[in-house]
């Protein structure tokens, strides 16, 4: 196992799948000659050429529509959205076309495509480029929504996403490309739709994913010094949502905090907490708390932006609150 960055892990997954299956190709804004705005596809253009690494116009409807069409006739396109915020320009394809074509035509079509999209705040990009709107997309049956929190999961889940016969929205985080972790070399597949215990503990359960995992791990380290053992469940896939490990952990700890970077209202936490109450109400020794983004459009100013985003001390405080 090598210790590599999230960027390298994603890159590796893409390259391995392109080498494995000639039907896999990439299209998107600046994925080719530029090498990807986040440098994930650096070197791909030279290796695979313009037929398999296709630079597109700045036209999200064209990008996603073309990917869907090509997928319907048997190719396996990976469409990159420069940021997830641009998905709103082509919302029709993400939520209204890709997830519905199979069902609406009685199972006649398959749409084996991946939409890679970068989300998240913390880079001072202003309100329209910094969002974590994952919950919106997870609302729609027919779409698979994956958002990894470690390099190993990023590789394993992306490879599974590319092999999936269903449309997958694969959400990466703009501030996590340099995060390092142990990643198996070569074939490494992680199952879509399976949550995972990323850190075992007995006192309190933190349910989280993506950036929230990074923050929660740090919070857990701090809390460990005070003798509090946190168990962290990483959702990894938002739809279909796997509640089993969450419920199992909660039934053991009886206390829980849900951490997400998006807004609290109608968010991932709202869904997870509801299900915990519906399915394990009797196990709760304290109200389940949510740590999430403040209910404001993200500001440019660094101090204000950081004040709006969930932080490690917020998680530490919430854990202590549920332990009271």
């Amino acid at each position: 196992m090598a210790r590599i960055t999230m960027r390298e892990a994603i890159s590796q997954a893409l390259m391995e799948e392109m080498d494995r299956d000639p039907a896999v190709f990439i299209l998107g804004e600046e994925v080719g000659v530029w090498g990807g705005t986040y440098a994930v596809t650096k070197g791909f253009y030279d290796k695979y050429g313009p037929q398999r690494v296709k630079d597109t116009p700045i036209a999200e409807n064209a990008i996603l529509g073309a990917a869907i069409g090509a997928a319907m006739v048997g190719q396996r396109p990976i469409a990159e959205l420069m940021t997830i915020n641009f998905a709103f320009s082509a919302m029709d394809y993400v939520v209204n076309q890709a997830p519905k074509l199979r069902y609406m035509f009685g199972g006649q079509f398959k749409v084996p495509m991946v939409i890679r999209a970068v989300g998240g705040g913390g880079r001072q990009l202003g309100a329209t480029h910094s969002q974590t709107p994952d919950a919106i997309f997870a609302h729609f049956p027919g779409l698979i929504v994956v958002s990894p929190g470690t390099p190993a999961d990023a590789k394993g889940l992306l490879k599974s996403a590319i092999r999936s016969d269903d449309p997958v929205l694969f959400i990466e985080h703009a501030t996590m490309y340099q995060v390092r972790g142990e990643v198996p070399e070569g074939e490494h597949l992680e199952p879509i739709g399976k949550s995972k215990i990323q850190r075992p503990g007995k006192d309190v359960t933190i349910v989280t994913y993506c950036k929230g995992l990074e923050l929660s791990m740090k919070a857990a380290d701090q809390l460990a010094k005070e003798g509090i053992e946190v168990e962290i469940v990483d959702l990894r896939t938002l739809r279909p949502l796997d509640m089993e490990p969450v419920l199992e952990s909660f039934k053991k700890t009886n206390r829980a905090v849900v951490v997400e970077e998006g807004w609290k209202s109608y968010g991932v936490g709202a869904e997870v907490v509801s299900r915990m109450y519906e399915e394990a109400f009797d196990y709760a020794d304290a109200p389940i708390l949510r740590v999430a983004q403040k209910e404001v459009p993200l500001p440019y100013n660094r101090t204000l932006e950081q004040a709006a985003l969930p932080q490690v001390p917020d998680i530490v405080a919430a854990v202590k609150e549920v332990l009271k």
Binding site: F25, Q51, N61, A62, L64, G65, A66, A67, I68, G69, A70, A71, M72, V73, G74, Q75, P77, D92, Y93, N96, Q97, L101, F105, F109
Partner: peptide
């Protein structure tokens, strides 16, 4: 026959994609 699409204009980029799939093949 690839549908039958109900969102006005929505199938045009998909049509480009069907053709892209053939070009790729």
């Amino acid at each position: 026959m690839w549908g039958g699409h109900a969102i006005v204009g929505g199938h045009l980029p998909i049509a480009a994609g069907l053709a892209l799939g053939d070009q790729y093949a």
